[in-house]
Design a protein around this nucleic acid. Structure first.
Length: 273
DNA sequence: CGCTCCACCTGAACGC
DNA sequence: TGCGTTCAGGTGGAGC
């Protein structure tokens, strides 16, 4: 589920535990997508949470003593923050951190495609899943030239390119369709046929769509809620996603399947060269 | 190496 | 009501 805007909304909601200390760790489900490292139990009582940030769709919780916890939400993962009185265990609560200000940070994930990782910070930064990441979709250093140079030799369609986290990280299946609609580019257009000018449009549309979505608290289709349990709002601003058969600007919205994933677009407004 | 497709899971929605 | 099928916001790895 969660793409960059949902992950960003999540980490913004976790500010209230930055600076607090961890007083307990509970693992209810040892194996998610991967096993939760056993040495995470070595986190000492009163280890401080120094910082919480995001790279692409990965959440990094930086701790004192050069340790870092990594969380990835997969398709159905969510992080919730409960006060002591509101906390009660729910189905699929896999991993729980309790802090000294009586908050419970709960990782819930029905499908268990997400994961929890833990290690020394410098080792986390050398994980393959981090090293392989392309530039973050909201990084100001992302330029049309960068995108152009990475895609100008491939026959892979641009929709699939946008989902490739090694090229740009953070975009997922919803926002790929929305970005391409905003940029007026066909999802079927192959990388080699995307001009530098179109790359510029993609870079601009990426910022516009993702920032708007963050402003709306992300998108809630099925699973996603903020750490306080609030629904996001951006699903009401989808132009094409999930709107097969409807019209946009008087033109039909169509659904196709690319690489096994749904793509929504408007063939009349998103023309192939 | 690059590309395509599948597996990994649960649960909700839909058709009969 | 129930049962089978399909689909879902992601991604690592097998196979070519």
């Amino acid at each position: 589920m969660p793409e960059l805007p949902e992950v960003e909304t999540t980490i913004r909601g976790l500010k209230s535990i930055v600076g607090s200390t961890i007083v307990n760790i509970k693992i209810n489900t040892p194996k998610l997508r991967f096993f939760i490292p056993k040495n995470i139990q070595r986190i000492k009582n009163h280890t401080k949470i120094i910082n919480i940030k995001r790279i692409g769709k990965f959440i990094l919780i930086n701790l004192s003593e050069q340790n870092t916890i990594v969380l990835h939400l997969g398709m159905s993962g969510r992080l919730r923050l409960y006060s002591l009185e509101k906390f009660h265990r729910q189905k699929h609560d896999h991993f729980i951190l309790k802090t000294n200000n009586n908050k419970f940070l709960v990782f819930n994930d029905a499908r268990r495609f997400g994961f929890v990782d833990f290690d020394k910070t410098y080792l986390i930064h050398n994980r393959k899943y981090i090293l392989n990441l392309g530039i973050d979709a909201l990084d100001k250093k992302l330029t049309a030239n960068m995108l152009f140079s990475k895609i100008s030799n491939t026959m892979v369609p641009i929709k699939q390119i946008l989902l490739n986290q090694r090229i740009i990280s953070g975009i997922g299946n919803i926002y790929a369709s929305e970005i391409l609609f905003d940029a007026k580019i066909s999802p079927l257009q192959q990388g080699k046929d995307i001009s530098l000018f179109k790359c510029r449009k993609i870079v601009i549309s990426t910022r516009i769509i993702l920032l708007k979505a963050i402003k709306k608290g992300g998108s809630s289709l099925r699973d996603y809620v903020s750490v306080d349990g609030e629904l996001g709002n951006f699903q009401n601003n989808f132009k094409v996603y999930n709107r097969e058969g409807e019209k946009i600007l008087g033109k039909n919205i169509k659904k196709i399947v690319q690489y096994g994933r749904s793509t929504y677009y408007c063939p009349e407004l998103q023309i192939i060269n």
